[in-house]
C-alpha cells in the first residue's frame, strides 16, 4: 500500500521541513491509522516527537483530514488506512 501525507500549519518543521511525503508499505494492504502515526513518530521525526503524537494518538490541536474530509467522519484515530489514501495533518496551534 501507498499513502500520501501532507503536513501544514507548522508541523512540516518536524518532518524535515517537507510538506509532502509518500510512504509505501510493500507487505501491507491496510494499516490502522494509530499504527501509521506511531510509525511516523518513531521513524520520521528527528526532534520533539511529542509535538506530533501524544498517548499514541495525534496530539490534540492537530486537525486530521482523510482524503480531504474531517477524520471524525471516519472514526478518528480508529480509522483503517487503505492504499491510495491521502492524509493531511494540520496544526491549529497558535495561529489565529
Amino acid at each position: 500500500m501507498k499513502v500520501k501525507i501532507e503536513m501544514t500549519g507548522g508541523l512540516e518543521i518536524l518532518f524535515k521541513n517537507q510538506k509532502n511525503h509518500t510512504y509505501e508499505f510493500k507487505d501491507r494492504d491496510t494499516m490502522p491509522l494509530r499504527e501509521l502515526v506511531v510509525w511516523m513518530r518513531d521513524t520520521q521525526i528527528q526532534e520533539r516527537p511529542e509535538l506530533f503524537v501524544e498517548d499514541s494518538t495525534v496530539r490534540p490541536g492537530i486537525l486530521v483530514l482523510i482524503n480531504d474530509a474531517d477524520w471524525e467522519l471516519d472514526g478518528g484515530i480508529e480509522y483503517i488506512v487503505e492504499d491510495g489514501d491521502t492524509l493531511s495533518f494540520i496544526s491549529t496551534l497558535h495561529g489565529g
Binding site: 480531504d68 474530509a69 474531517d70 471524525e72 467522519l73 471516519d74 472514526g75 478518528g76 484515530i77 480508529e78
Partner: peptide, 27 residues
Amino acid sequence: PTPKKAVKKTCVRCKEKPSIILFRTDP
C-alpha cells in the same frame, strides 16, 4: 466523550452529496 466511531457519510442537509465535515454531530 465523543464516540470514536465512523459516522454515516452522506450529508444530512441535502441527503445527496458526500460529507466532508462533522459539524457538531451532523455530517
